[in-house]
């Protein structure tokens, strides 16, 4: 049987036991975040001001495809972040592959666009885009960090990455509706820089942030 120290610990833990409410299903945790993030981003984008050609852009297939792709990255990353809150991911580790697959398609899409259209890394709206991205993402980012640290992840770096990726995706889509510069260089580099920095910051403190 166990050593006395383990026995003591078991008795102590038993004494401390309080009834706990099982954590909601990851889908039930992710869904309100996704809806909330989308609604919040929509309000912020309206507050900042929609790009003048936004209605025309809604009939641009490339624009719609890219936003849909990024949306899928964001949704799957948010789901993955919530699944990662459970130590064994409810036995569904394959979920990790989904955001990575969409992300790979997104980078492939960006690579193809840069080959066809050129990169054109304009910096004119860099400060403006960074500020807008910050306001679009700050509240969803805070809630996502709160949500993902509320569980008990066994993969802190992956959790930090998925949290950042989900926020980045919503921010990226929001910026597509405020900034008229659709070039690959501007959109995929300057629009993403604040989120890459967020991801790096979360990655640096991941072990501490997700400690339990």
């Amino acid at each position: 049987m166990s050593e006395p120290s383990v026995d003591d610990m078991i008795n102590s833990l038993t004494d401390e036991l309080e009834p706990v409410k099982p954590m909601a299903h990851p889908m039930a945790r992710a869904l309100p975040w996704m809806i909330g993030a989308a609604v919040y981003a929509w309000f912020v984008v309206h507050h900042i001001g929609l790009r003048p050609d936004s209605l025309e852009k809604l009939s641009d297939l490339h624009f719609l495809f890219e936003n849909m792709l990024v949306g899928l990255v964001g949704i799957s990353a948010a789901l993955c972040a919530c699944w990662l809150c459970v130590p064994d991911m409810r036995g569904q580790k394959w979920i990790i592959a989904v955001p990575f697959s969409f992300l790979a398609v997104f980078f492939l899409w960006g690579g193809l666009r840069s080959l066809i259209e050129g990169v054109h890394m304009e910096t004119a709206h860099f400060g403006h885009c960074m500020g807008d991205g910050f306001w679009i993402a700050i509240v969803p980012a805070a809630i996502m960090v709160f949500l993902s640290t509320g569980g008990a992840t066994t993969r802190p770096f992956l959790s930090a990455f998925m949290a950042s990726l989900s926020v980045a995706s919503f921010g990226y889509i929001g910026l597509h509706f405020t900034c008229m510069m659709d070039t690959v260089g501007h959109a995929m580099v300057y629009h993403l820089i604040p989120f890459v920095l967020l991801g790096m910051a979360l990655g640096l403190i991941a072990r501490r942030l997700y400690r339990w």
Binding site: L13, E16, L17, V20, K21, P22, M23, H25, C85, V86, P87, R90, G151, A152, W212
Partner: peptide, 9 residues
């Protein structure tokens, strides 16, 4: 003990 709430029955 700390993560008992994350276990799903």
């Amino acid at each position: 003990h700390k993560s008992l709430n994350t276990y799903s029955p």
